[in-house]
Nucleic acid binder design. Structure first.
Length: 554
RNA sequence: GCGCGAUUAGCUCAGCUGGAUAGAGCGCUGCCCUCCGGAGGCAGAGGUCGCAGGUUCGAAUCCUGCAUCGCGCGCCA
């Protein structure tokens, strides 16, 4: 709709230049926007203001000339106004809004999708929690956000791959292995002193029990290093399976699980380091190999290979990110905890150093989640490693509420998550409110069916029966859905869809409360049934983008 | 100390990338059930958009400085 108006305005401007009524020849950037107040029409265009300087005329005067040059737009609008400092306001014909309803019904679950992505290959890497323990609530927010962003990118016409990066190469595998080994020995009656830097969670004991069930005390007869390796490998596989299962319960799946270790197995880390060296971007100092990231705006240089010869995590990250681009992705997205924000400049430096645009990598930072119960913070002993796990929260409030709450705020803003509110089955709980709107339409459909009515086709509907302001407002809001999705995808801001849902839910409940859908007049009933089912489709599609279900009954 | 991010209604937060009279939810006050699901709806009160400058037709939005808060600054991963 906006684009159609933009085209009309541009061709009107072209006509003015041809006729000589305007003569700067400029085609300035201008916006087509939905005004805050309905008296200002359905769309407002600020081109006259943008042109004022070049034309050296008052904006309102320019607007008059442009309006004179705008033809009927094929009946797209009823009326044009010039208002305020020189806005051109478009009052669209009602048929435009009725056409939207038809479009929604015929596109069904595809409504909201667009082609703005143009099929570009995008990769989004998220969660990527260390496979040394369960997912906690912070990972959950990253999972919900990454997954919703992926769904929105796909809907906006991108070719999306979801990837989980497994940190299975570093020292942590050894620590995990040693922790399990210790617990295993303990189980077998050996008196142990548990290492301070080990993983203290109870799940380590569980893993030791599982390992013992699978392999008996065989690992204990091995030399220490070998035993730790065996325990580490077993533990990591166990934890990854565990993580995968929790994510599945959360409705999150990955296309690819990418092993850090595989980078070393294929010698990719060394290859990339050689490339950096050949480009003269590295230097040696104090026996270590450094990347001169300061050349690209980082505040200090970074170590790639430590003086003891062991590559840093940064080194494999360099290789990993370069390999992403070699796999053909034109855009790469990382979802990180906000406490890692200091790593952004060095990764951008890597890209720039190796010939990519820094903007080819986008980092989505996820802020902290504060768990609350009745408004009081839930104690999380950070020291003891006693995080509240994602699984605990899913079990308590359900996957739907959990995901919805994680997505309610923009991701770079800290989030208060009230467990009691998330469980509540009332209008105070935003997810119930929106799901209820969907269930309510389904309920209306059931009532209609009992009366022998089915949802009509567009041809059977007399749209002119929809004259109430609420009905037109609903149609206009439904029309905004595709651009809302595209905007949310482009900016990686799933919360926009949440706000959209809230608005749509409110408008629908209000409409429902004000007038009967199924009444005495069949013409009106059919038209309203058609309208509320358009609403139902958009509610379902929007909830789907969040990974939240749209129940028919509650 | 340096860097990044924040600061909008009593509370929690949006604000479509510079537009017209700044919005929502919760809370508060007052209303609405012969009705397709009241798990709902309507109305009202509530703001110097942290402070001070600047940029321009126009600023919550962009720039500079200051204040307050959060996070990050390892040859850890």
């Amino acid at each position: 709709m906006k684009e159609r108006l933009r085209t009309c305005v541009n061709s009107a401007l072209k006509r003015c230049y041809a006729e000589g009524s305007l003569n700067s020849g400029e085609y300035p950037h201008f916006v087509v926007e939905i005004p805050a107040h309905s008296e200002h029409g359905d769309f407002a265009v600020n081109i006259a203001l943008a042109l004022a300087r070049a034309e050296k005329q008052a904006p309102r005067k320019i607007a008059e000339i442009l309006v004179a040059a705008l033809d009927g737009g094929d009946g797209l609008w009823d009326r044009l106004d010039i208002a305020g400092p020189g806005f051109i306001n478009f009052h669209l014909a009602q048929n435009c809004w009725y056409a939207v309803l038809d479009e929604i019904m015929s596109q069904g679950e595809r409504y909201g999708c667009s082609e703005v992505g143009g099929g570009a290959k995008v990769q989004i890497e998220f969660v990527s929690a260390n496979p040394t323990g369960p997912l906690h609530i912070g990972h959950g927010r990253g999972a919900a956000t990454g997954d919703a962003a992926a769904r929105m990118l796909a809907a906006a016409g991108y070719d999306v791959q979801r990837e989980y990066y497994i940190n299975d190469a570093g020292n942590q595998v050894v620590i995990l292995g040693r922790s399990i080994w210790m617990r295993l020995r303990e189980l077998c009656g050996v008196t142990i002193e548990f290492p301070e830097d080990g993983y203290h969670g109870d799940y380590i004991r569980d893993i030791a029990v599982k390992l013992r069930a699978a392999q008996g005390d065989a690992p204990l007869r091995l030399a220490e290093t070998e035993a730790i390796e065996v325990c580490g490998r077993f533990g990591m596989e166990y934890v990854i399976t565990w993580i995968e299962r929790d994510l599945q319960a959360f409705g999150v799946r990955f296309d690819n699980w990418y092993s850090e270790k595989s980078l070393y197995d294929r010698d990719l880390v060394q290859t990339e380091l050689n490339t950096l060296r050949d480009k003269g971007l590295t230097f040696e100092q104090d026996g270590a190999l450094w990347f001169r990231t300061t050349a690209y705006g980082d505040d200090k240089d970074r170590v790639l290979i430590r003086s003891d010869g062991i590559p840093t995590y940064f080194a494999s990250d360099v290789a990993y990110h370069m390999e992403k681009f070699e796999r053909g992705f034109s855009r790469v997205i990382d979802v990180w905890g906000a406490d890692h924000h200091g790593y952004v400049p060095r990764m951008k430096a890597v890209l720039e150093g190796l010939g990519h645009e820094p903007d080819d990598l986008r980092v989505l930072l996820i802020q902290m989640v504060n768990l609350l119960r009745d408004g009081q913070p839930v104690a999380m002993g950070k020291r003891s490693g006693e995080f509240v796990t994602l699984r605990d929260v899913i079990d308590e409030v359900g996957s739907d509420a959990c995901r919805y709450f994680f997505l309610m705020r923009r991701s770079d803003s800290p989030l208060d998550f009230d467990l009691e509110l998330a469980k509540q089955q009332s209008n105070d709980n935003p997810v119930y409110y929106v799901q209820y709107a969907h269930a309510r339409v389904c309920s209306i459909n059931r009532t209609a069916a009992e009366l022998g009515m089915t949802v009509p086709t567009a041809a059977q509907v007399d749209f002119t029966a929809l004259q109430l302001p609420e009905e037109l407002s609903l149609a206009k809001l439904l029309a905004r859905f595709p651009e809302t999705v595209a905007g949310a995808a482009e900016n990686l801001e799933p919360h926009r869809v949440v706000y959209y849902l809230q608005e749509l839910g409110t408008l629908f409940h209000s409409y429902y409360n004000k007038c009967r859908i199924i009444g005495d007049d069949p013409t009106t009933s059919h038209a309203r049934l058609y309208l509320v089912n358009s609403v139902r489709i958009v509610l379902a599609n929007a909830l789907g983008l969040l990974g939240v279900s749209a129940p028919e009954r509650m």
